Amino acid sequence: MNPMSRLRRRFQNWIATRTPRVPGPWTIGRRRVYIVPTRYGYGYGLLLFVMLLGAMNYSNSMAFALTFLLAGIGLLAMHYTHGNLVNLSIAAQGADPVFAGDAAQFSIRLDNPSRSPRHALTIAWQDQLPLAHADVPADSSATLSLALASSKRGWLPAPRFAVATEFPLGLFHAWTWVELDLACLVYPKPAADGAAPLSSGHGDDGRWTTQRPGPDEFSGLRGYQAGDALRSIHWKSLARNPQPLVKLFSDNQADELWLDWQALPSSWGPEQRLAQLCRWVLDADAAQRQYGLRLPGGSLSPALGAQHRHACLAALALH
């Protein structure tokens, strides 16, 4: 390992000891704000040094006054840059589930409890360029989003990120490290369409229909029986048949669809099975078919809706 890599690792380990993982909200204290000059700040300091040498060489009081005035402005800029972060509160807003391979979006809320606005704030993952920018008005908040690539299913914890600013003059860079207890659920990547047709083992498409009493379709007539509602009597048939007839209706009942781990080929590995089950969940949900999920060690009863889809995909993600 080269010296720079060793130094970087030691620096990251030091940051980790100074930045525990917290659930949030977390308030930035004065002792947790780090500040260094930017390249413009170093240039500004060099300019002041040259001006000071010139003033001393020519014993010019106006040159001294201008040099000290600019030095005072630099010190004032350092004070405001540092104060732009102090007492800012940071909280996790959560992350919507994504499929493996997609970018997870972590929402971070910045709360400004002071009466002064906070300008030109940026947040970024460690060792990455700033990904989001915001101005936070006084007694207000702003929500920023940080994208992070996902590669495999399961929980994706949010890594350490930096909240930074160079306001107001860009002469100094102030930042703090934050590690919130925040994670995104990553679903398995769905298999390609048509890799294995959706089927429950009952017919070609996994569904059969049965007739049951219902209001959907007219299915025939039967003789009148005591207790039948008057509105169900087929009045038009009385002209041909003195015996009253009653109208029958039925609707189509779809069979419950089971997405079963054991129904997949035995030669398939676990991740291939999970990918195919994920595809079946999405297809069944899009077709508005009641479906259940059977996995080794547990199952989910057939149902419909976004909540059931999430429960099935979460079970696949954490299997």
Score class of each variant (00 low, 15 high):
A195M: 12
G94Y: 07
E166Y: 05
G201N: 03
L316G: 05
A132K: 08
F11E: 13
L313M: 02
W280T: 13
A103V: 11
R240C: 00
N2H: 08
L47R: 04
G74V: 13
G214A: 04
A226S: 11
T210K: 10
F218D: 07
G24W: 01
A162D: 14
G298A: 06
E166M: 11
D181T: 11
M56D: 03
D204F: 01
Y42C: 03
A104H: 10
Y80S: 05
H79G: 15
G41I: 00
L129K: 14
S266L: 02
F49K: 00
D216W: 01
R31W: 03
D285C: 10
G201M: 00
L129F: 09
A306L: 03
A315E: 07
L230F: 10
Y40L: 12
A317I: 01
Y224H: 13
D111Y: 11
P265K: 00
A183R: 09
L144V: 12
L110T: 09
A317F: 00
Y40P: 07
R118K: 14
L182E: 15
S114I: 06
V281C: 12
K189V: 09
L316I: 03
Q105I: 14
A314G: 02
P168F: 08
L70V: 08
I90A: 08
Y58H: 08
K236P: 03
D251N: 05
S116L: 09
L88T: 13
A63D: 04
L238D: 02
Y44I: 01
R8E: 14
G54R: 00
L304Y: 01
G201P: 00
